[in-house]
Amino acid sequence: MFGVMKIINLAHGDMAVVAGYTAVFLVPKFHLPEVWSFLIVVPIFALLGYIVQRTLLQKSIDRDPFTTLLVTFGLSVVIENLLLEIYTANAQSINIGSLIVKSWQVNNTISVSYLSLTVLIVSVVVLGALQLFLSKTSTGRQIRAVSDDREAAQLCGTNYRHIFGIASSLAFATVALAGIAFGMYTSLSPTAGGVNLLFAFETVVIGGIGSLWGTLVGGILLGIAQQFGAHFNEQYTVLAGNILFLLVLAIRPQGLFGRKVVMS
């Protein structure tokens, strides 16, 4: 979604962590089982996304990409330290009761946990819904138009700031879902956001910037590289991924599926 605005949000991973923390600490106050926390967190984040975009991010986008980088990096550091200060460095996870251990037994050797299955289905549904939204609705059309050519879209009467706000609220909503899913699977810590941002970034560059299929392949390759590293030593997990990334940068800077563009 941030592709629409052509910015890089260095605080994106931290947003996911904040969503997870909201699910852990805020939702129980509504006496709702934490499994259903997304019902509350996702709308809050969608609203938050619009507000943050129209207040902070739009101002920095209006200035230049340089400012956007500094602002999102500043936000990332502030968010991480706020979480550390308020909720300590302890890892938190979203309590979903017995659902975490329940699984669907395919046969004796293969079993699929309900949680993984749910997350998979939800992500496919969300991606499909986003795709439909972008291709069928008027707002979706405007988002695509602003992404293609902002000036031309403006001349046709599109309010690009509002569109950016909507794009950002969609981005926040999806990242909130991701954060909650992450919190259910494993545990969240204040600094988890940065690590996840690094992995996401490596995936995109390995696959090739701007290529959707590339991103998928990049993700698979990164995962394989990390498992390969972990095979030798637990410490080498992340390092192996980083080395793959640096190798791709050295040998094929446009990424595996990227088109050769003049980098300037």
Binding site: I8, V205, I243, M263
Partner: peptide, 16 residues
């Protein structure tokens, strides 16, 4: 890499 990609890449280098 340029711009934001350059920034995150410097972070990857530091991490490595």
């Amino acid at each position: 890499l340029r711009g934001g990609y350059f920034s995150v890449a410097t972070w990857v280098v530091a991490d490595s």
